[in-house]
Nucleic acid binder design. Structure first.
Lengths: 146, 146
DNA sequence: TTACTTGCAAAACGTTTGCAAGTGC
DNA sequence: GCACTTGCAAACGTTTTGCAAGTAA
């Protein structure tokens, strides 16, 4: 885990405590290295590392991690939320393959600029955005037409 | 309700039946005129019009309306899904005001073209996309800084 | 010591489903 | 008449919460 310090500072600033459970969760979140995860996966990973962290604590810690700017909610698949580590990473958007489920991350400064301009034209102060393109990756598009 | 015919054709084509319940739901969906709604709101609106349609039927009809190209899922707020009538309307994206909850719709052909280009660069065949910008509308931004 | 935090188990929430009765076609 | 469709109520899976015990500071 690198840069977990940001979360620790966040807790201090709010008068919240750094517990073993929160440390374990934070460590596990950084261990995802940016891969998407859901609360249940996080909980299972923690159990496998014999970290005794309850599901409730996982659910209670996630909003704190979001508020601290460590993770973001990416998208809701089926019924449950998915998250990703964003701390220290540049903003990016996602393509989701409907064939194999693969997630392709991409970033485009042109896109960011265009959005800024559109916001300005609407008198809107944009803070965050999410763009998701659904379709088919190269491999799945080929199989589909072949 | 205008153009509900598309749904009726869809049902016919699938060997499904046009029931009073489905007609009532369809009518109520067109009555939203493009405003976002969730299944519960739809169900309440139907009850108020003394249309005896159960919650189960609302939930069972929504996937049919999506498949028929009448509505689309817009975004999940909290735990539940929101939808909007898209049939006969041009594709657009959304700005969501974090202050007052207002939804601003916008469309940009430049954005569409840029996305096409990005997809091409990644060998990805884009089918649909959703872009949501969160921030503050003119009024809320002013109140925030004033 | 004091308030925050935990685990548990139960509750809450939106959504789905099995079933028997009803109904388009 | 046959299958599709309905309403009901129970089930489902995810997330939240009340509570008493535990613990960081």
């Amino acid at each position: 885990m690198k840069d977990g310090g940001a979360f620790i500072e966040f807790l201090k600033g709010k008068g919240l405590r750094l517990t073993l459970e929160r440390e374990a969760i934070l460590g596990e979140v950084f261990a995802t290295k940016g891969e998407h995860f859901d609360p249940e996966e996080l909980h299972i990973a923690l159990r496998q590392k014999e970290a005794n962290v309850s599901r409730a604590s996982v659910y209670r810690t996630i909003p704190l991690l979001i508020e601290a700017g460590i993770i973001e909610e990416v998208e809701r698949v089926d019924k449950h939320a998915h998250y990703e580590l964003t701390y220290g990473r540049e903003h990016h958007d996602h393509m989701l393959c409907l064939g194999c489920g693969k997630v392709i991350e991409f970033l485009s400064h042109e896109m960011e600029e265009l959005q800024d301009r559109i916001c300005r034209e609407h008198g809107f102060t944009g803070e965050t955005h999410t763009l998701e393109i659904k379709g088919y990756c190269k491999k799945c598009a080929k199989n589909k037409n072949g």
